[in-house]
């Protein structure tokens, strides 16, 4: 079945305020179950940034895949992509800072026609660059077949989603045929040296559950993935990151449509882990939208919850001193990052 974006289908959930209302007006947001009350009880009065270490750029919502759980609501029918002008502003602001890591995400960031130009310019700043590559993009068009070479030449860390080491679960979540293409793309990356010891080329995989349940222990899943992918396909990789599905956009739609919404939210709340709060990704990340607006994290971005100070919420008025110590905007979706072992773009956090 071909999945279309919420926006294409004119779904009510395409409106972020509708999503926020659902998240706030259910049992979870009343009194004790409010996220900010939970963090207060764990000894944190307000969640604030520690210091920005990751500059995460969403290069656009366009994607060659339409995954059922996508919190970006990305897909081939989404045309919003970052302009070269906005990229130049990112470059200019980064030049003035010493933020060490740049994280390129989307959609499929490679679909942005200025992707390679941008990466080449970013390299001149001498920072660590990572790209969230969905793997199938490499095989989607002959013009992308050389992406492994391009990544390697620029020493980019590749972070790729593979929800399971079996076809059935992967294709259910990411679309028919995705598993086989992902395996082929991983083999191409391996051939270029990615994931191989001593190559210096990092290939990390992301596991996120194919349904309304939390990810298991990261280390144990990593061992399973390494064994299965090596035994069946000869694939190697560096680390597996487990990421919890957030009740945002198409995953929120799935939760509601499948009757799992209330149970899932309860699970996130009852699995609240106070130890994870201090290390949630918003405390060391700034998220830049395709249009240059600034957000505390990728999920806030999709809910259109910009950083608190509306005079400093765009790349054009980027103020590192403010952003390094800003108060973070939270909501009920934040329970997704504090459940169980915690979750971030870099995997489990506690």
């Amino acid at each position: 079945m071909i999945v279309k974006s919420l926006k294409f289908r004119n779904s009510k959930l395409a409106d972020s305020s509708e999503q926020i209302e659902i998240l706030q007006n259910t049992i979870q947001d009343s009194g004790e179950d409010n996220f900010s009350n939970y963090i207060k009880r764990s000894g944190i009065e307000k969640l604030t940034s520690r210091k920005i270490e990751i500059f995460q750029i969403n290069m656009g919502k366009m994607c060659n895949q339409t995954c059922k759980h996508c919190h970006v609501d990305a897909g081939p029918d989404r045309k919003e992509i970052m302009t070269r002008e906005t990229m130049q502003m990112c470059l200019d602001k980064l030049f003035e800072t010493d933020i060490p890591t740049i994280d390129l995400t989307g959609g499929a960031p490679e679909l942005n026609p200025d992707f390679r130009w941008f990466v080449t310019e970013l390299k001149k700043l001498n920072r660590h660059i990572m790209v969230r590559c969905n793997l199938t993009i490499i095989l989607s068009n002959p013009g992308f077949n050389d992406l492994p070479d391009f990544f390697a030449e620029n020493n980019i860390e590749v972070v790729s989603s593979l929800p399971y080491y079996q076809k059935i679960n992967t294709d259910r979540q990411r679309g028919d045929g995705v598993f086989e293409k992902s395996i082929k793309a991983l083999q191409m990356l391996n051939e270029r040296g990615y994931g191989k010891q001593g190559s210096g080329l990092i290939l990390n995989l992301v596991y996120n559950p194919s349904g309304a349940f939390l990810p298991g222990p990261q280390h144990s899943l990593e061992n399973d993935f390494k064994k299965e992918l090596m035994d069946k396909y000869g694939i190697v990789f560096n680390n597996l990151f487990t990421i919890t599905n957030m009740p945002v956009s198409r995953f929120l739609e799935y939760l509601i449509d499948s009757g799992n919404y209330v149970d899932y939210m309860e699970k996130l709340i009852t699995s609240f882990n106070a130890a994870a709060v201090r290390n949630v990704m918003c405390t060391n990340t700034i998220s830049i939208g395709w249009d240059g607006y600034l957000y505390d994290c990728d999920f806030n971005q999709m809910l259109d919850m910009k950083v608190k100070d509306n005079l400093k919420d765009h790349i054009s008025n980027f103020d590192l001193n403010y952003l390094d110590t800003r108060e973070i905007i939270t909501g009920q979706h934040c329970f997704g990052c504090t459940a169980g072992s915690g979750s971030s773009c870099g995997g489990a956090i506690s």
Binding site: Y164, Q166, I168, N169, Y207, P209, G211, F213, L214, P215, G216, P217, S220, L221, D224
Partner: peptide, 9 residues
Amino acid sequence: ALEKGCSEE
């Protein structure tokens, strides 16, 4: 079992 990463099989 799903959370522990078990397959349906």
